[in-house]
Design a protein around this nucleic acid. Sequence first.
DNA 1: GGTAAACCTGTACCTGGGTACCGGATGCAA
DNA 2: TTGCATCCGGTACCCAGGTACAGGTTTACC
Lengths: 148, 148
Amino acid sequence: MSSGLRSGQVAEAAGVNIQTLRYYERRGLLAEPERSSGGHRLYDEEAVTVLRVIKAAQRLGFTLDEVTELLETGRHRHGRVVPGLQERARTKLAEVDAKIADLTTIRATLATALEAGCDDLTVCAANACCPIPFTGLAEENRHAGPCC
Amino acid sequence: MSSGLRSGQVAEAAGVNIQTLRYYERRGLLAEPERSSGGHRLYDEEAVTVLRVIKAAQRLGFTLDEVTELLETGRHRHGRVVPGLQERARTKLAEVDAKIADLTTIRATLATALEAGCDDLTVCAANACCPIPFTGLAEENRHAGPCC
DNA sequence: GGTAAACCTGTACCTGGGTACCGGATGCAA
DNA sequence: TTGCATCCGGTACCCAGGTACAGGTTTACC
């Protein structure tokens, strides 16, 4: 009989640190596994799957708290009011879009600074025609212009 | 006599916390200002400008360590070993592009999961036709060019 | 039965960018 | 002079997501 996977094997299979297993267990993401007579953890195959699910969800931008809720929602969906994956994915998608938009603005500013030939922030800050937005760091459009 | 700006005034003018001033001073981003006879900091106008420069650079994705170097490079351009803003901005632009590419992949995955109607990660993980990549999402480096 | 690797618990530490709290000193106006 | 706002230095703490270490067991293999 397969006596179960030891923590090292599970960690290896899922590509995480052993400490991470215990960390997830403490956080309630990973169920407490069986133990050997000596107290060593013995996992079943499912643990590896759960770890992969966690990593996939993290990769999609969910925090560990969010992943915890997602897993729990799946476990006991007893008419809870907890929003499911669909709902959360929609929200997350909006967040990702916002991040992309923000980074796109940043990208544009960097590109403009390169084009303008900016090479010294302190000089630029004193120079009214520098395209870097030193005031009003709020994230809106900044049109390019010749500088320095 | 303009006796200088007190830390509260500088913080207010630059839109940062007073503690942040001392934090930046400790980190070497902000020069140590004059002191009143009683030991209170007295800043000049330039301090506000430096703070704005720091915030702008942060906003462009530079870490405080990087900002420190950028400011030092400007101050005394000793040798050409240290890359200037141009060089660093070019590097940072590539980093930002990588992040955008990464987020775009994530966005696409989320959108696909929504389309497919995924609503339970543990079910999905057991389901071969789920579009969420449970294996292979391990690391964050997907940005090195077109792979397919 | 010996030994080395793997594992156990508990606690402390890491990164990055700040914030908060403390008890005491200063600045400034009335 | 009194009273209150502000500031001082030092230290501790916050967030997330882990990672590392110490000192002691257990397991596996020869």
